[in-house]
Structures are given as C-alpha cells and as structure tokens.
C-alpha cells in the first residue's frame, strides 16, 4: 500500500488543519482583533538559563554585580540580564541584545506601558543597526543608517504625556519585528555570499517608512499637546 510522500504530506497537512477546532479559531481571531496587541511568548525559560550564566559571571566580576543593581521596573533579573548581555556582546560571544530588547518591548506593550515599549523597540532597532555595520558594504551601511534614524524617530514620537496611541505602539512593534527579522536574514545572506543588496534595499525602505510614520505620529502628538499652535483656538 505504497503511497507517494507528496500525497502523504498533503493528507498529513489536511489532518493537521482539521485538528484545529472552529471554536479555537474563533477564540484566536477574536483575541487577535481585540487590541491591545504587540507581544506574546514569555521569556521564562530563558530567565533560568540566563540565571546560570549570570551566576558564573557574578563570581568572576564584581563590577557586574554593581551593574545588576540597575534594575528596570519588572523582573528582579532584568538588570542582571542586561549587564550580562552587554558583557557577552562586548567580548563578542553574543548577539542577543536585539532579541532581548524586542522581547522587553513585547512584554512592556503587554503590560500596557506604551512609552517604555516604544523605547525598548527603539533600542532593539539601535542594536540591530549596530550589528549590521560589520559586513561594511554600502547598501548595509545605508540600511543601518536608516534603521538608526528610525530608532531615533520612534523615541521622538513618544509624547510627553506618555500616552501613545495603542495602534501606533502595535504598528511600531510589528514593524520593528519585521525589520529585525529582515536584518537577520540579511546577515545570513551575507554569510552565504548571496545577493544581499535587494534585501538591504528592502530593509532600508522599511526603516525609512517606519521613520516617516514615527515623524507623522510626532507631528500629531505636538498638535494635540500644543493646541494653541494650531489654527483651532476654540479648544480649551
């Protein structure tokens, strides 16, 4: 009763698709459509692993212990975690900063802390732009610059009141994730000497678009915060 692997693959796919109940789909879709969005995937597993490495670092480096005092709101391990990353990155054994910042941005967005989430997204972009500079080609540099610019624009777009629109935060989170993903792909492409210039261009375009949107958001924010600057003086 030999079947072809392709037929079997299709049948297997159909069985997997059928195994998703309508109720489950409805629940997920309802959840996705209900704002706020922006993150998922807890980092619990990672915290344990990081903890073990931190213990090793702590015993070897008193300075790190001081750095770990520098904890942000939230987890007790937060500061230690960041200090560990910085050292690991400094000695060139890790490229985790981007991923960690992104994860923080997700977590903060989930907690509803919009400005901190945007700041973390901006930091993720900053980190990914630094990581792109190694290969040294012009298209990479251009993309890296655009990403750095985008990172700055995000921070400018955080209103003084701290109340960013949830849609804007979601938008920035998605874009940041995309940019980080593309940057990783670009670096993979560089390793295999593939044609990376299209990828660099795509990355560059996306980063520029993100900058534009952040600039618009900033302009909207300042209209709201300084109504007297606008022509409409009738508002209180």
């Amino acid at each position: 009763m030999s079947t072809s692997p392709m037929d079997d693959l299709k049948a297997y796919a159909a069985s997997l698709t059928d195994s998703v109940s309508m109720a489950e789909t409805d629940a997920v879709v309802a959840g996705v459509l209900r704002a706020p969005r922006g993150g998922r995937q807890p980092v619990k597993q990672r915290v344990t692993a990081v903890g073990v490495v931190i213990a090793t670092f702590l015993s070897a480096n008193v300075g790190l212990a001081a750095a770990s005092q520098n904890a942000a709101p939230g987890d007790a391990l937060y500061g230690v975690d960041r200090a560990y990353e910085r050292i690991a990155e400094f000695v060139g054994i890790s490229d985790s900063r981007t991923e960690e910042r992104l994860q923080e941005a997700n977590d903060l967005a989930n907690r509803g802390d919009a400005s901190a989430a945007l700041a973390a997204a901006s930091a993720a972009l900053e980190a990914v732009s630094s990581s792109l500079e190694d290969p040294g080609s012009d298209s990479y540099r251009e993309a890296a610059n655009s990403i750095r610019q985008a990172s700055e624009e995000i921070t400018h777009a955080i209103p003084a009141s701290g109340n960013s629109r949830p849609e804007f935060v979601n938008d920035m989170m998605t874009e940041t994730r995309m940019i980080v993903e593309l940057a990783h792909q670009l670096r993979d492409a560089a390793k295999t000497a593939g044609n990376a210039s299209d990828a660099a261009k795509e990355l560059n375009d996306r980063a520029k678009e993100l900058s534009e949107r952040a600039k618009n958001e900033k302009a909207n924010n300042s209209d709201k915060e300084n109504p007297k600057d606008s022509k409409d003086n009738s508002r209180p």
């Binding site: 297997y12 195994s19 997920v28 879709v29 996705v32 969005r37 998922r40 995937q41 998605t174």
Partner: peptide, 30 residues
Amino acid sequence: HPRLVAYFAGSGPQRADAEDLAAHTLEAVV
C-alpha cells in the same frame, strides 16, 4: 488560522508553539 497552525506544527514546532506562532502571524497580518 487552521492552515497556519498546520504549517507551523508540520514544520517543527510543538503544537503549543505552533498555536502561538499562528496567533502571532495573524497579529502581524492585522
């Protein structure tokens, strides 16, 4: 949604991860 769950589950991740990834993908689509 069901196609995404199938794609992820069929490509490697455990079922729970596949469901997370499917939801995450839908968020990005939205």
